[in-house]
């Protein structure tokens, strides 16, 4: 049977998302009696090479420098055309989302977004995904091959290690376009030097109910005590109170912290779609009927302006 390919970016390392993609890829490969072939885009460090070699049957490295959409798309297309895989799995980072539909088109396959589960049914790949802003789940059957799926990667268990494996690592031979019509000329990181929001253990998140940008400073104090990272609803991002990279939800980050504390966030399904993997959700909201409470372990119905200062004081005392 033809390979299952997983496409990983060297710049991300073998992070939790890459582990999830590899896990999903290994299980799909086992289901169809195929090999798992990892493609790493960029120049991986030794640690990533070793980690990927320990889970895949073969590794191809496409060292094409910093990400440029058209060049990366061309490289992946060439590698996939040579390997003729039956499935190509990617993570749900922005680059992968940008590439996947176009890659599927170039390969004559079908793509699907944000997969939460993968199954092989009578030789066809079926993908479960959340639709209608998280209000419903759909099962999609891909009609063409290869199946190109970008996954809610962190929701998948990592791939098992194969310690005795001697996986071949090959560089890709590529014939890349020299003239392209789009060029990334500046890359700006706004996230600071903390870990990524997707990997945060505790998140303090603010919504439109905060009323203005200033209360985010108060939430930051709360976050500092808890060692938490900050996030926001789309409404707070759209208001320009915090950067778009803070947005959690269907069209923002998909997070999975041990605790997600939602302050003045209503809990629209599109927001909840980003926190369905959180272990505990807690909320401060003035409206006891706010849907966020339906997903909460515990909550407090109160004006955040009264709760937050007291909470900062109490947590400071309890942490001592």
């Amino acid at each position: 049977m033809n390979d299952v390919i997983i496409s990983l970016f060297a710049s991300a390392g073998y992070d939790r998302a890459a582990q999830g993609v590899a896990g999903a890829g290994r299980r799909l490969a086992a289901d169809c009696g195929a090999q798992l072939h990892a493609v790493i885009i960029g120049a991986p460090d030794a640690a990533m090479k070793a980690a990927v070699a320990a889970v895949a049957d073969a590794v191809t490295i496409a060292d094409i420098g910093d990400y440029q959409t058209e060049i990366c798309l061309s490289a992946l297309t060439q590698i996939c055309k040579t390997l003729a895989p039956q499935a190509v799995l990617l993570s749900n980072d922005f680059y992968s989302q940008e590439l996947a539909p176009r890659l599927a088109h170039r390969l004559g396959g079908s793509a699907v977004a944000d997969g939460l589960a993968l199954n092989l049914v009578e030789g066809k790949v079926r993908v479960n995904r959340s639709v209608y802003g998280g209000k419903a789940m759909a099962t999609i059957e891909l009609q063409r091959s290869p199946a190109v799926v970008w996954l809610r990667a962190r929701a998948f268990d990592p791939a098992p290690l194969r310690p005795e494996a001697t996986t071949a690592i090959q560089p890709a031979t590529l014939d890349l376009p020299t003239r392209v019509s789009t060029t990334i000329i500046e890359r700006k990181v706004e996230a600071g030097d903390e870990a990524r929001l997707e990997d945060a253990k505790v998140i303090v998140s603010g919504g439109r109910g905060l009323g203005s940008p200033e209360p985010f400073n108060e939430l930051q104090k709360l976050a500092n005590i808890l060692g938490a990272q900050m996030a926001a609803s789309r409404a707070a991002c759209d208001a320009g109170w915090v950067p778009p990279s803070w947005q959690v939800g269907q069209t923002g980050k998909k997070v999975a912290p041990g605790l997600y504390l939602a302050v003045a966030i209503h809990g629209a399904s599109q927001h909840l779609a980003g926190i369905s993997d959180a272990k505990n959700i807690a909320a401060i909201n003035i409206d006891k009927d706010a849907p966020i409470f339906k997903q909460c372990r515990f909550g407090i119905v109160e004006d955040y302006r009264k709760v937050v200062p007291l909470l900062i004081a109490r947590l400071n005392a309890l942490k001592k």
Binding site: S110, V112, R126, V131, K135, A136, M137, A138, T139, I140, E141, L142, Q143, R144, I281, A283, K288, F293, K294, Q295, C296, R297, F298, G299, I300, V301, E302, K306, V307, L310
Partner: peptide, 25 residues
Amino acid sequence: HYYAVVDLFIPVQELNCEFVDGDTL
């Protein structure tokens, strides 16, 4: 011809939120 929807359903998952209580804020 690209893909087909074979199932659509509403997942049920609601937690029982513990609203903290007490006489004072």
